[in-house]
């Protein structure tokens, strides 16, 4: 597998793991100095915003605490297309830009008798990723989920 393919493989695997709520497997794709953030630009206040952020341990802690929280268990599924992968000259680092659409299939968020089973677009945005590549494996160093969607209604406890 080429280094560019390794980057794409990590991006798609991260989507699968998060879709399946395999948070540990997702974080295993990330390097020790990994930084995660969900951001958006607000045309209302004309500023960039950070909706959520954390390093690898903070994200691990957040996921560990999920069972203690009441939450909307409607699963999120990520449809991702990797648009561009750019490798540094020595092949040790890479950046990638992907499009992502997240669908939510209603389970217990509203009235399950009526709404359960309905899928809706939850949000759209882009992934801006940085990778460290070693022995053909691309590990996430940074992921910024830059949202277009800013009307998030009930929101979510899950990373995107």
């Amino acid at each position: 597998m080429s280094n560019a393919d390794a980057v794409r493989d990590s991006i798609y695997r991260s989507c699968m793991y998060k879709d399946d709520m395999k948070w540990q497997e997702w974080l295993d794709l990330c390097d020790e100095d990994f930084q995660y953030s969900i951001t958006a630009y607000s045309p209302e206040i004309r500023n960039d915003m950070i909706y959520l952020s954390g390093d690898r341990e903070e994200m691990r802690g957040m996921m560990k605490m999920l069972p203690k929280h009441n939450t909307d268990h409607s699963p999120l599924k990520r449809h991702c297309s990797v648009y561009a992968v750019d490798l540094e000259d020595d092949g040790s680092m890479a950046t990638a830009v992907s499009s992502v659409v997240v669908y939510q299939t209603q389970l217990d968020g509203i009235n399950s008798h009526v709404d359960a089973g309905e899928s809706k677009v939850f949000l759209v945005g882009r992934y801006f990723d940085k990778f460290r590549i070693s022995d053909g494996v691309a590990k996430f160093v940074e992921r910024e989920v830059k949202l277009d969607t800013r009307k998030l209604d009930k929101g979510s406890h899950y990373p995107i």
């Binding site: 969900i38 950070i50 909706y51 959520l52 952020s53 605490m65 929280h69 009441n70 939450t71 909307d72 968020g109 998030l152 209604d153 009930k154 929101g155 979510s156 406890h157 899950y158 990373p159 995107i160």
Partner: peptide, 16 residues
């Protein structure tokens, strides 16, 4: 935002 953002711990619970 760790508490009150759209991905925060408390706001989502309140809105649910």
């Amino acid at each position: 935002n760790s508490i009150w953002g759209p991905f925060g711990r408390n706001l989502h619970e309140d809105l649910l």
